[in-house]
Computed example of a mutant assay.
Amino acid sequence: MTFKPLILVPFLATPAFAGSLDQAAPEPAPAAPVVPVTTPATGDWTGPSVGVQLGYGSADADGPADDSEEGALYGVRAFYDHDFGNWVAGGGLQYDGADIDLGDAGNVDGIAKLGGRVGYDMGRTMIYGSGGYAHASTDGGALDAGSSDGYYVGIGAETYVTDNVTVSGELNYNEFEDFDANDLKVGATTATVGLNYRF
């Protein structure tokens, strides 16, 4: 009986190791960089606002005074709007001082407006249509035209430049035919840009 096979048993039972016992663990794969998700900035149009505006107007008188002239405008405005999501509705007051000479009809020295607007909310920009009551006053002139009630219709846009400040632009058509001078009718087209503070 031989004992040689028994001598090999401890070596056969020992697991074989390939390489060094101190082999380093593999390094983990680098994590993908986290990219922040940006959401488009939006504006909330609900609330009051006040502003100033500058612009240009062209007035055309028909009837006893047949004249057409142009001149600068400067004014103030105050609005209140409510944001319904995609749509914005509001109303407000505007007053533009002017000095547009209409010959015998005198000078158009001011246009006041009270009306509403309905706009589409594009986030930080709103485009809108507006309309309402308007009142024009004149000064001087052989006709002593006085003042007249009327109406206005227009389009405009307003956009945020900071969290509380917006810039705006409007194009309006105004019509007046109730002056003290009979048959005098004045149509005025005005274009203005404004700077507004929203509360």
Rank of each mutant, 00 (worst) to 15 (best):
G116T: 08
L21F: 13
D81L: 01
W87V: 10
L93V: 14
A32T: 14
L195N: 05
A142T: 14
L184P: 09
A59W: 10
E27G: 09
G150C: 05
T159F: 07
G154V: 09
V153W: 09
F79P: 01
L8W: 04
D104C: 11
G141W: 13
A61E: 05
G97R: 03
I155G: 15
D180W: 02
K4I: 14
N164S: 13
H135C: 04
G123N: 02
A16E: 06
Y80M: 05
V161S: 02
G55L: 08
Y151K: 01
N164E: 03
I111E: 03
A13Q: 12
A65V: 07
A98I: 12
G141S: 07
D44H: 04
V165E: 02
Y173F: 14
D44V: 05
F17G: 08
A142F: 11
D183C: 05
L114S: 04
A157G: 15
V108H: 11
T159Y: 10
D62I: 03
V193C: 08
A112E: 04
F179I: 04
A61Q: 06
Y160E: 06
G57S: 11
P5K: 05
S20N: 04
V118S: 08
G85V: 00
V50C: 00
A59Q: 10
K4M: 13
Y80A: 10
R117N: 14
V186A: 12
T162N: 00
G187W: 12
L8C: 03
G194Y: 04
F179V: 07
V165R: 01
A188Q: 14
N174D: 13
T14W: 02
E175C: 01
A89K: 00
Y133Q: 14
I127C: 04
D99L: 01
F11N: 06
G75K: 08
G150H: 03
S68C: 09
I155C: 02
D60N: 13
D67F: 15
N107H: 15
P26L: 09
G55R: 06
R117M: 12
A31I: 15
L102P: 07
D60Y: 03
